[in-house]
Amino acid sequence: MRISLLGADGRRELEIHRYPLIVYVLIPLVAVILQSWLPRALGMWLPPWASRWALFDLPLLVTVYFALGRRNPMQGTLMGALMGLFQDAMTHYPIGLNGIAKTVVGYLGASIGVRVDVDNHTIRLLLNFGFSMLASAIYLVVARFLLGLEIEWRGLAELAKAVINAGIAAVLFPMLDRFRVRE
C-alpha cells in the first residue's frame, strides 16, 4: 500500500488530470439525473427494508473525483457549489444546504489532491468515506443551527451512506479514469 504524503518535489511531479470538455458537462449531468431517478427505481425493485438503505450521493462522488483529479481549489469550489445547488433545486428544502456542503468538499478535495496520491484506491476509499461524512455533518449543521430547521439526524444512515459512497467510488473512479486525456 502506497499512502504517501508528497513533498514539494513530488507535488511538482503530480499529474493534473485533463478531460475532454464534454466529460465535464456530461458526467455531472448524468450524476444528477441518476441521483434523482435511481432511488425511485431501486425502490421499485428492492424490498422495502433494503430500499430504505439504498443511500448514495453520486453528485458528491463526481465533485470529489474532479476536485482530486484537477487539483484546483477554485474549480473544485465551483464544481461543488454547482452540483450542490442542482441537488437542492430538486428537493423541497432551501437551495444552498447541499450547495454549502459540497462547496466545502470540493475545495478541500482539491486542496488535499495537491498533497496525496489520489490514484491510490485505498486513499480514494478513505477520502470518499471522510468527505461523505463531512458533507452530511455540514448539511446538518447548516440546517439545524444556521437555519433552525427541525431536521432529525440519523447517524447510522449517514454512516451507511458514507460506506456505500466509498464502495461506489472504488468502482466508479477507475471507470471515469478511462475518460482522462493521456499526454
Binding site: P73, M74, T77, L78, A81, L85, H92, Y93, P94, I95, G96, L97, G99, I100, T103, V104, Y107, S111, V142, L146, L147, G148, L149, E150
Partner: peptide
Amino acid sequence: NHVVLLAVLLVQIVGLATQVRHSGRQNNSL
C-alpha cells in the same frame, strides 16, 4: 482560492436566509 470559497459560501448563506421563515419559536420552518 480562499476568496472564491468565501464569496461562494457567503452568497449561499445569504440566499438561504431568505428562504426560511422565522416562526418566533425555537425552530424555524420552510
